[in-house]
Design a protein around this nucleic acid. Structure first.
Lengths: 228, 228
DNA sequence: TAAGCTCGTCACGAAACTGTCACGGTGCTG
DNA sequence: CAGCACCGTGACAGTTTCGTGACGAGCTTA
């Protein structure tokens, strides 16, 4: 599945330019001309990244960012802001846009793609399609297959997503709540203990190749994917 | 839990920029437009760090800083001041007011984050996720792992928090009451002698790698984490 | 439509953890 | 060296947390 990028930009020329370019780069692009439109759309579908123009009619990009950050469902949505040199410079006096998540116009499309890639890698590494291999446990996001020491392992969709998340975020404890947010999606109302059940199912699915030891319980905190 | 940062800044544009950026950096951000607002909020909730603008309508950042230093509850709250100009007199006043650090505008967001991280590391190291290593005893907050000379050590939740606190506050004696406050939480009613029991359990957990000698008893005062 | 699969929830029991106590040892003080 | 305060230690019961088997609902496939 290609990453979906939501572009909010009121200038049609720039809209097209970005859209065409990103689609050529293999992304799925949703374009909106205003913040209101974007907010409406986002109720139905959560993109993997948002590219917002700083200056927008109605809700500005900054306000939109704030709104997105305020809602728990979109709290962790990666955002890149397009800021223009010139008029906005005054508002930003005292601050340079030295952050990773800001791009100042004019920018090259090459730079745009590089930034998007960097942000996605940092914020949502599970969206890349690289094959991951840890101690003989191999997961291929593209073909949706998992094998342990060459032998195919069979796991359900949820277990696959769970394992995919763990393998792209190893050596770190995640609480049940965090796992629900990241693996199930943040708009679901599911009992925390349900995570336990899927952990169990995942362990069972990995047991033929003894890889279930990689799924570790951290009592009082959550679960962890790690060696040892 | 992510560190909470209170931002007091009256300029909305800068407010937004800081807030968005810090949230992307993984912090929880509380924004207030005036010192009065901030003081009110702080009654309910104590942030882990305060970022104050020097120039504010009403109570200025410096006055606010002094007030916070005067109250015992906020006395040890790390403070960073945003100063408009780099005049020496301001630096002096800023440091006199008890601020831990100051940043002169214009500054980059990268610098802001670096300063925040530095102050937190100095004032509240237990909130960072840096791996701590003392004489081969290694604690990783992110993965919740502890090892002694490479060998994994197993300790319970309370012992983990206790060791984490000790390792981030070495070479200093803490009374049982202080340990209860810092490790267990502010307002718990627990027998002081219970600390002894957990010290013992921690020592037992560290004994496989002989690191229990780092946990030292200071008769009549409390306990200390130190080399020799 | 029936069979098969997956999912979320629940209840039960096992295991781990916690706080407290009593006892005994240790070191300081006079 | 006796008395005392302080600390280490083992045990224990109550509680919390986690693993596990079972079950029904919903969805897909044949």
């Amino acid at each position: 599945m290609n990453p979906t990028i939501m572009v909010v930009e009121d200038e049609p020329a720039i809209q097209d330019l970005i859209q065409i370019n990103l689609e050529m780069g293999g992304y799925r692009v949703l374009t909106h001309g205003s913040g209101e439109e974007a907010l409406k759309h986002i109720q139905h579908e959560l993109p993997d990244l948002a590219l917002l123009d700083w200056m927008l009619p109605g809700i500005s990009g900054v306000e939109l960012s704030k709104k997105l950050r305020a809602d728990s469902r979109t709290k962790s949505l990666p955002i890149i802001l397009l800021t223009a040199k010139g008029a906005e410079e005054d508002k930003l006096k005292g601050l340079e846009s030295g952050a990773d998540d800001y791009i100042t116009k004019p920018f090259s499309l090459r730079e745009l793609e590089a930034r998007i890639k960097a942000v996605l890698r940092r914020r949502a590494p599970e969206l890349t399609e690289d094959v991951i291999d840890v101690h003989g446990l191999r997961l291929d996001p593209a073909s949706h297959k998992v094998s342990g020491f060459g032998k195919t392992l069979s796991l359900g969709p949820t277990e696959f997503r769970l394992l995919h998340f763990f393998m792209t975020h190893p050596e770190r404890v995640y609480s049940r709540t965090q796992l629900l947010d990241f693996v199930w999606g943040d708009h679901v109302f599911i009992e925390e203990r349900t995570v336990d059940v899927h952990i169990r199912r995942l362990r069972a699915a990995l047991s033929p190749s003894k890889h279930e030891v990689l799924i570790q319980t951290v009592r009082g905190s959550g679960y962890r994917f790690a060696k040892d």
